[in-house]
Design a protein around this nucleic acid. Structure first.
Ligand code: FES
Ligand code: FES
Lengths: 168, 168
DNA sequence: CATTATTCGGATATTGAATATCCATATTGA
DNA sequence: TCAATATGGATATTCAATATCCGAATAATG
């Protein structure tokens, strides 16, 4: 029961793109370098975010990634679903329909109570993740970070951030 | 992000042992046969339950497994922790401390806000699982099952259930 | 009490799927 | 035309699921 490691990278990438707004972005190489992770693997995560519409992409020279919508409209659950998939962690294999005392098929219209309990727990988990947005997270970072560190990030932005073609 | 498949088997096994009370039990072969699953792998789950104290075992002729405590004192969370382990699904690798704009070590005394959000979601998940006991589940099964099916189970119990040595 | 059949306990391969990583290709701005 | 860049598929690696085995412990049996 381990989550895809790329989720951490993807969320951090979104938090990095958020302050740039919808028109400016970063190249894949810049994102990978900033986080100190291999670029090809970071590409996989960004690709998943792109397919989910969380980021928009611009190909070709001076292309890159920018947020696809407002940071307050992207939740942690969105990112998890995009990168890690939407399959439930507990999967009922209908074990009750096997063996010498198998439940008859017609009695299994309703899901097994055990599966129901697990589904409820996962709903609580998703609810908690859906209540946190990227905007919430960057607000915390901006509040906790030291001025010196924030200044270093601003300087890095100046060298790496680039204007992306308008969405129109 | 997939849970160990044995969790489903372990929970069902507990629900099967519950109506037998603390003194009667079932052999490993009976448990595996009842659920139609390979015995060696079922053994692995039962061993995990045994080490966690959820079931007690009796070796030797006519030995087997029985619940280690009351069914109302065993939660789904107990079973998940025993079989699937207690490692968190989201693991923070401190990515913020890497790359050209790494956060200084001293700023990282508090966990990353992203990691905090995921930890909170997992706590909600565990809370939901900890609120459901084996007793709750068997009550639902007893209410939903048809008399014919319950009768077949009773007959099977008559052939397979066995008295285990008292815990004293 | 000695014997024996039965059962759990744990360690160890083998298989298969999921994950992490890399490379070739299409696309775009300059 | 060229260099820069995202995209998709292909490949290697890791991890979990499954099968198999043997030893230790225990209760029934005489
Ligand atoms: S049959 Fe799948 S959880 Fe009960
Ligand atoms: S550094 Fe691990 S979640 Fe932020």
């Amino acid at each position: 029961m381990k989550m895809n490691e790329g989720v951490e990278w993807a969320v951090h990438a979104c938090c990095l793109l958020a302050p740039l707004g919808p028109d400016r972005g970063l190249s894949l190489a810049a994102l990978a370098d900033y986080h100190g992770v291999p670029a090809p693997y970071m590409a996989k995560q960004m690709q998943a975010l792109s397919k989910a519409g969380i980021v928009r992409t611009s190909r070709g020279a001076r292309g890159g990634y920018a947020l696809g919508r407002g940071a307050d409209a992207i939740t942690l659950l969105d990112v998890v679903r995009a990168v890690d998939g939407a399959v439930p962690m507990f999967r009922c294999t209908e074990i009750r329909q096997r063996g010498p005392c198998a439940s008859p098929r017609k009695d299994c219209a309703a899901p097994c109570p055990i599966a129901r309990a697990f589904a409820g727990a996962e709903a609580a988990w998703r609810g908690a993740l859906g209540a946190v947005t990227i905007a919430d997270l960057v607000a915390t970072v901006g509040r906790d970070g030291t001025p010196a560190h924030l200044g270093k990030i601003m300087q890095w932005f100046g060298a790496e951030a680039r204007q992306l073609p308008s969405v129109g």
